[in-house]
Design a protein around this nucleic acid. Structure first.
Lengths: 238, 238
DNA sequence: ACTTTTTATTACCCGTGAGTAATATAAGCC
DNA sequence: GGCTTATATTACTCACGGGTAATAAAAAGT
């Protein structure tokens, strides 16, 4: 089926795929190193020389994989955004009322904020990007904001959330969540999971109509958010 | 009283004071212009040439008032911090229960976030500062965090706030508030006052034990923040 | 073994913007 | 007016870091 000639000596395809994979692995390694350094020192203070140094290569080698420093920044952001797109799609496709979706969104978003690529969504400055890339980022941010408002509006419509201003509520919730990206650090007392659980309850309790099952403050029987469920592969380039 | 000689011709003090005042006014003008530009474009993209240009002077003239770009950044931050210190001191001196203090804090903090110098508290990066200044900033941030937690703990003790984890609650509240500094812009639909009123209620309702007096949201008896009170003149050069 | 392509290195360019030196101008002061 | 001090300008230095050119080393393909 795969138009591969029955070649008993050496298949040219395997090596080809290997090479592609190796390349992508290197790309990813660059991004992992870069996002860490950018978060650590800030985009402007971080130099490509140091990124390269941490990878045991030299600066120009990076240009085999990326066109510019800004390109690297954008790709870091894109990886984080991909995560967000993934769980939003999953929640959208789930069968819950508005409050349930909002809780799930808060939970997943909180977890993402505790990752490097997730934090980059809020700690990187879109103004460091080219106009074209900045436009993409702004559109994505609007999309996230719209999702928050949509779930809230949905919850008001289905009666699970009490009437309120979706805009204001979304700002307040997103603010708490985005702030995680600024204070969370691995190895601290709070685990991403504990934070996500706490915030999922804390940021939605004020909006819920029913105050049911408030007794067991920990572990509400609320619908668990499926963690990394079926994520849309979203195979961009490659 | 003020060892000033009874001089009927011309008091040498007045002109002297005038010059001091003129100088301070210019200093402030630089800071106002700089904070705007820094917020607009980000600290690294903003150039002192452009700051000067907006003031109809040239770059070296700025060095009559500030030692460095970083110095300007720090002073902008300090003006914002001064506001915060002001209303925290006022609330501390007020006679309210923990919940009342927390509400007042949220209200004032929200208003401050809608100002240029207030926004600079969260939009400027301490890593752009000298180690010494960065230390000052970090200490101040810890102080604000401690204040949030203190009011919450106080509220739990006096029964106005239901038992919860002060650390988590403070993070959630501060996050919402700090985020204002990122999305608020003058001339939008939402006025600082409306935001402050809404957030003061929204961010504390989940913590309150009694759900009383939910109606009159506006104008907590919170004291006004004193503006530019006695600041150490900090007469640098000349 | 030879050629081609990929990946990396060394050595450089060069724009940028903070900060300074030398100097002119204006204002205060007697 | 004449001296002094404050304030501004023009013209410059210089470190830094992103990006490129030329080229070497390595790997893949035949």
């Amino acid at each position: 089926m795969d138009g591969r000639p029955a070649n008993d000596t050496t298949s040219p395809w395997m090596p080809f795929e290997n090479r592609r994979r190796a390349r992508d692995e290197k790309r990813e390694a660059v991004l992992r190193t870069a996002v860490q350094l950018f978060l650590e020192q800030g985009y402007h203070r971080a130099t490509l020389n140091e990124v390269a140094e941490r990878l045991n290569i030299t600066k120009p080698a990076l240009y085999n994989y990326f066109r510019s420093k800004e390109d690297i920044l954008f790709e870091c952001w894109a990886l984080g955004q991909e995560q967000v797109d993934g769980f939003i799609a999953a929640i959208d496709g789930s069968r819950q009322n508005g409050l349930g979706k909002l809780r799930a969104l808060v939970h997943s978003y909180a977890e993402t904020m505790a990752t490097d690529f997730g934090a980059s969504l809020v700690r990187f400055d879109p103004r460091d990007l080219s106009p074209s890339n900045a436009k993409t980022v702004r559109a994505a941010k609007r999309g996230i904001d719209r999702t928050f408002r949509r779930y809230i509006t949905e919850g008001i419509a289905d009666g699970s959330i009490k009437p309120c201003d979706p805009k204001m509520a979304a700002f307040a919730i997103a603010g708490s969540l985005n702030w995680i990206g600024h204070w969370y650090q691995r190895g601290g007392e709070l685990t991403p999971d504990a934070i996500a659980d706490d915030f999922a309850e804390r940021l939605t309790e004020g909006l819920a109509t029913a105050t049911v099952n408030k007794r067991p403050i920990k572990q509400p029987p609320a619908p668990r958010t499926k963690k990394s469920a079926a994520r849309a592969p979203t195979t961009k380039k490659k």
